[in-house]
């Protein structure tokens, strides 16, 4: 009965002839480029055609979410869905009664993959609203097969990398799980992941206390992604104070390298790529996108490595560097205004 009344009420939502004409005219007017990531998604067959695959990790949940939508950290993450490719999902298995896991999609480039799952819990997460974002990030641990998997798909067969995950709140009984995999070496082709999301670890303390998540595993998923080779956007560095350094931005990652000893020395001298240095991208709309370092991101040479935004550090001795970092969330490289490395601003090459 209530639904009949509701339907009757909704049927009285109509549109005036004037508004209809306005909308039609608006559509026909010439428009500038559409929103960055939507346009990118449309023009990029990678995303539409991409296929996700998988073999076996256990998730190592941590870090910041790319879909920070819920907490509205001032960034518009909404176009993420338009960037995603349809995953080829071989299996998804929930390990909690009533937990509904829906693969949403993924975004990727040669160095980084983001895969997004939505978790619909069987009941509301009590008091959830009182918790802050950081309390919802958690740590699991990587499966011992990780290294083998990396070897199996990196182009030169000896890459290292890392995977991380974040839980982002959608509403009282829904979380997004964003699985981020970044690889030091270039990846290409179909890559299969066999992921097992063990638990919410840190956040688990909170959630377990509420007897919400008390099992070791939340869910497992096997899926495949297809990585296409993409040109990175070159960032101009002439006159920035970092001549000799090459920087490229891809949709999900950045690459910074140099074989110029003076540049490398300067970078080291200024403490540029230390664990606490700040690297970020500024988009044309003024939005800032943080760059995160992967655990094996910055190899200098024998026994010398500096990991950026992670725990290890070392001394560069041989005058070369090769840094990989992944972006806080995917971007359209055409929309990049600049890359800032520890106060040095490198303008995008237009």
């Amino acid at each position: 009965m209530i639904f009949d009344e509701y339907k009757n009420a909704v049927n009285k939502i109509n549109i005036s002839e004037k508004k209809l004409s306005e909308i039609a005219e608006y559509a026909k007017k010439p428009h500038k480029k559409s929103i960055k990531l939507i346009r990118y998604g449309r023009s990029f067959p990678i995303i539409a055609a991409a296929v996700l695959l998988l073999a076996g990790f256990t998730v190592y949940a941590a870090g910041n979410g790319i879909l920070d939508i819920i907490f509205g950290g001032g960034k518009d993450y909404s176009p993420f869905e338009n960037l995603t490719g349809e995953m080829t999902v071989h299996s998804v298995e929930s390990h909690i009664d009533g937990l509904d896991v829906t693969p949403i999609g993924y975004a990727s480039d040669s160095y980084t993959v983001y895969a997004v799952f939505r978790l619909d819990f069987p009941s509301a997460l009590p008091e959830y609203d009182e918790y802050q974002e950081l309390q919802l990030d958690g740590y699991g641990h990587t499966d011992n097969k990780l290294i083998d998997i990396l070897k199996s798909f990196s182009e030169d067969g000896h890459a290292s990398g890392s995977c991380m995950g974040s839980y982002i709140k959608e509403d009282e009984d829904t979380l997004y799980y964003i699985y981020t995999f970044s690889c030091e070496d270039k990846m290409s082709g179909d890559i299969t992941f066999d992921m097992s999301c063990l638990n919410l670890a840190n956040s688990c303390e909170t959630l377990v206390r509420d007897r919400l998540i008390y099992k070791d595993k939340l869910f497992s998923a096997k899926f495949t992604v297809n990585i296409r080779q993409l040109e990175g956007r070159r960032i101009k560095n002439e006159g920035s104070g970092l001549d000799g350094l090459n920087a490229y931005v891809y949709p999900c990652s950045i690459v910074i390298n140099s074989t110029d000893p003076e540049t490398v020395n300067e970078i080291y001298r200024t403490g540029l790529l230390t664990p606490y240095s700040a690297v970020y991208i500024t988009l044309k709309n003024g939005e800032k996108v943080d760059v995160k370092g992967s655990s094996a991101s910055y190899e200098l040479d024998n026994n010398t490595s500096v990991s950026f935004n992670s725990a290890s550090s070392g001394l560069p001795r041989y005058g070369c560097m090769d840094f990989r970092g992944y972006l806080e969330f995917p971007v359209d490289p055409d929309e990049i205004e600049s890359l800032t490395i520890y106060g040095y601003e490198l303008k995008a090459d237009n």
């Binding site: 209530i2 009757n8 009285k12 939502i13 109509n14 005036s16 509403d171 009282e172």
Partner: peptide
């Protein structure tokens, strides 16, 4: 709504709109 609606229709609209979006 762009037309008059009855009390019962209002109540139904209000009740459904109070539901969470999902």
């Amino acid at each position: 709504v762009t037309e008059d609606i009855s009390d019962s229709e209002k109540a139904a609209l209000e009740a459904v709109m109070k539901l969470p979006e999902k």
